[in-house]
């Protein structure tokens, strides 16, 4: 418990991060409680179309073009959007870190080979991959998550590799090598903690970015039409942006808050995890 408490003490020094955590927790609570608070299909037509927000208690945030309750959809949207963010960033981090660490630590032929592969992926425009995946798998959450992970991992790989390169020739690593420590232990226990802060920052950027990317995909008509996400709500409401701003504006605000919250949390994590800043 003690280390956790210490961590929390360091974390809470960053007031922004505490605020961010509050946002993320709220969103998570919305996601978890949605089916319990509002049973039934969130997309069902509940009232008249285009009821403005804060007009009636029945629909506190108004209704969209088909008369679906925006408030209820917002809760369900949290489930999908957070899922997309978390799943995409975890897959991304896993692929990116593994490849980046291997390439950075071993270098040489393996490193070169991995980096060539990474480069190849980078040269294929994201939208191509997204379109291929979405059309093969059909527009679904899974294809959206995979598309985002596949276009994002290269960045993580490159950053991880660059960090590993920086540390590989440092004294404490060389000392471990001399002591006969196995490579995987050096990677995991010695170098990795040191490169973690930028990777945490990177991963959180990707989690946040995934939520944004999902909204862009929806904008281009490549989102999943059967599940409610904030991105999908924002994209669908865009055509009435000028007349009923709230249809795309409210889920857009939710995206803004969630992305902001995640980024603030990642900053807090960065502060709390960073061994050098700890001394200050």
């Amino acid at each position: 418990m003690e280390p956790l408490l210490q961590f929390w003490r360091r974390y809470r020094q960053n007031r922004g991060a505490v605020f961010g955590l509050a946002i993320v927790l709220t969103a998570s609570a919305m996601a978890l409680l949605a089916p319990w608070l509002f049973p039934g299909d969130p997309r069902r037509i509940a009232g008249a179309p285009y009821i403005a927000p804060f007009v009636t208690w029945q629909f506190p945030l108004g209704t969209d073009q088909l008369g679906r309750d925006i408030f209820v959809q917002l809760f369900y949207g949290a489930r999908v959007s957070l899922l997309v963010g978390i799943a995409a960033s975890l897959v991304t981090a896993l692929i990116g870190c593994t490849i980046g660490a291997l390439a950075g630590f071993y270098g040489g032929r393996l490193g070169a080979l991995l980096m060539r592969g990474t480069e190849m992926f980078q040269t294929i425009p994201d939208i191509m991959l997204a379109l291929v995946l979405v059309t093969i798998l059909q527009a679904s959450l899974l294809s959206v998550i995979i598309s985002i992970a596949i276009v994002s991992w290269t960045t993580v790989a490159r950053v991880t590799r660059a960090e590993f390169l920086k540390f590989r020739s440092q004294d404490f690593v060389l000392a471990c090598v001399v002591m006969g420590m196995p490579s995987w232990r050096i990677i995991v226990s010695q170098i990795f903690p040191n490169v973690l802060p930028p990777i945490v920052v990177m991963t959180s950027i990707i989690a946040a970015g995934a939520i944004l990317a999902e909204s862009s995909l929806s904008f281009l008509g490549l989102g999943d039409p059967n599940s409610v996400s904030w991105g999908m709500m924002t994209g669908a409401g865009r055509s009435v942006f000028r007349n009923a701003w709230y249809v795309s504006g409210i889920p857009g605000l939710a995206i803004l808050m969630a992305v902001l919250g995640i980024n603030l949390v990642s900053d807090g994590l960065n502060d709390a995890l960073n061994p050098r800043r700890r001394e200050r």
């Binding site: 904008f219 991105g231 857009g252 995206i255 808050m257 902001l260």
Partner: peptide, 24 residues
């Protein structure tokens, strides 16, 4: 803090949102 916060808010906005708002 201001710089950090502003950059975060900017980063968190969907691009088409910014674009449409600027047009309006």
């Amino acid at each position: 803090r201001t710089i950090a916060f502003m950059s975060m808010v900017l980063y968190a906005m969907p691009a088409f949102w910014i674009g449409l708002s600027l047009i309006v």
